[in-house]
Write a protein that binds this DNA or RNA. Sequence first.
DNA 1: GCGAATTAGTCACTTTCTGTGACTAAAGTC
DNA 2: GACTTTAGTCACAGAAAGTGACTAATTCGC
Lengths: 223, 223
Amino acid sequence: MRERPSRATPHTVDAVLATATGNELAILLVRNSSERERWSVPWRTPQAGETLAAAAATVAKDALGEPPAWMEQIGAFGDGKRHPSEAEVSVAYLGLVPHDTASPRTGYAWFQVTELPPLAPRQRAMVEGATKAIEGSLDQAPIAFRLLPATFTLSELQHMYELLLGKRLHKASFRRALQAAWLVEPMDEWRSEGRGRPAQLFQYLPKKKRRPHRGVRFDFLYP
Amino acid sequence: MRERPSRATPHTVDAVLATATGNELAILLVRNSSERERWSVPWRTPQAGETLAAAAATVAKDALGEPPAWMEQIGAFGDGKRHPSEAEVSVAYLGLVPHDTASPRTGYAWFQVTELPPLAPRQRAMVEGATKAIEGSLDQAPIAFRLLPATFTLSELQHMYELLLGKRLHKASFRRALQAAWLVEPMDEWRSEGRGRPAQLFQYLPKKKRRPHRGVRFDFLYP
DNA sequence: GCGAATTAGTCACTTTCTGTGACTAAAGTC
DNA sequence: GACTTTAGTCACAGAAAGTGACTAATTCGC
């Protein structure tokens, strides 16, 4: 990503790195020296033989010093939209990092998703795709846990879900569903956070077997 | 970005075209004359300025004479796996067609997903991605309706869901969920299919507004 | 020290949804 | 006309989700 090829590059790999700050999602951008836009989603032209996922991991590592806790491809973008590179196609990856461990290298900075600076159109499409992917796979993948530190309170977990879903959840329902899913393990530690009763700490406990949905879901609105 | 590099194709667009035959999914493949594998997923190198989706639509049209009823991108594939082209990256699209309107051009043929001939590794990965995408977005998008003719009986619809989900559904539950979703509109026509009471015909009626899920779902098993 | 305020955590009740078997309806077969 | 076959509906039991009220453990103000 550093070197700018003199002629058209075949494709780029772009990493939309997200974290959750306070009460909003934030995206990591890198400062441009010479581009039309002052900021861009970090990207890279893969070396010969480098896999897409490996290239994305490298981009993330260059930005944060360590690989993200979660990474998945969210698709290929092109369609005539402009990109900082000359490439016709860019493959976008979504990476998630807990906010506490996420210290960007110099030149990189977090931006709230609602206050993003201007981006190249193709990269703006990627960010939109990434936020959709987060919401869409929230109940398919342990997204929320990848945005939290290794240990957390149930209130923190619930707030993370509320942030990602964009709606309030009822405490009792949330905990009942969580218990039924066997996703979380209580630890023998409590944390006192100013006033109020101390909260027990929990850690993520991956599921072993999937229990299929009951019923059929018809939850779409496509034309 | 408009200009096209003069050497090795930068990327390809591949179309995994699927239909439902009898009781299994089938994929459309094209016969190769000179490749290592005798069959391959139809693909194309996009022209300069051609969008990815447009290229995929062209591939599908070349294969079937008309665009599929549904088309969506399922991701970029590369990762060193071999492809009929020289391209390092291939963008795969999933296309769905009703079986009755799907007459392949010469050189193309349907294969049951369980009886696929050998494919280039990258294309095999695409087909696997496509079948996963079908099951995964079955309750997010009107997949089943795009595999059925414009009008259908509720039994046909239920059988399609059973095929795609790989499990049997209870008639009363299925219809109750369908009614609650307002996805289907009765027509003033009935069809008699040999013995038994004639079935009323229905057509797909896209939803206007989404009703959000109740509760929170923790349905994943990722590590 | 003590009550108010604050956050954690649980309980019980109500409402809604799903699984299921049995039922009625309308055709063909013999 | 009795039997078979497929369509379509009903009603009830059981499971899951929505919700408000409760108890528990801490800090703050006084």
